[in-house]
Amino acid sequence: MKFNKYILGSILLIGLFAAAVIAFPGIVNPENASSGETQSAMIDGIRVNYLQNSYVIDVENPAELVGDADYVFVAEIEKLTGTAYRFPVMILDEDGKEIEATTPFTEYQVSVIQNIKGDLVLNQTIPLQKKGGISKDNKTYTIPAGDFLPKEGTVYIFLAYAQDDGSLVVSGRNSVIELDKDTDSEMIQKNYDRLRSDSQILTFQKAYENQILRDREHSVSIYDVSKQ
């Protein structure tokens, strides 16, 4: 009879634990839960607001990323020129008062060093917009989750979409790809030979060979060689 108490107690404890896990899996079993990029993340002391998106392609698959973009290219960011505030919508503030809310798009001037897909003009200053940026009151960065804002004087791979007006927009997770650290330092010295062996560039060149296309309407950039 003495053991029955142990058995009964053990069954009760395990039963309670099982019930708790079934009811609250993320709480009882922390390894079973995951949280997104925290809203308290900071860039240069400024809070980051991460946009949550649903995508029409697998944004973790380079072949789909390249297949869907109009232009994939290696470019140096020459200058951050400003922020455009697009898609205004009226929302209610904390006091129930109507205010306008917008999405920031950071405006850059870039110089294309190498085309991977498409044929943009090389070594000329061209503008592009990157979804995400600083708020009008300079208090918050708004960036798509899993994305980042590229920096001036740095070389990246860009995956851009030509808009109806011929402008270029870079938008969403994995729309800007950092090069290898070694490449970055070589770029500072303007040694572009290093681009031939950069692992990220090789990945996206291979992805272009195996690109997965989506049936959609395409536009041609006004910075396409064919438009010059």
Binding site: N49, F87, T102, P144, Q163
Partner: peptide, 13 residues
């Protein structure tokens, strides 16, 4: 917008 996202939720706005 011509890009690859279909929907977007903005926690701040």
């Amino acid at each position: 917008l011509k890009n690859n996202d279909a929907g977007e939720t903005d926690g701040d706005n």
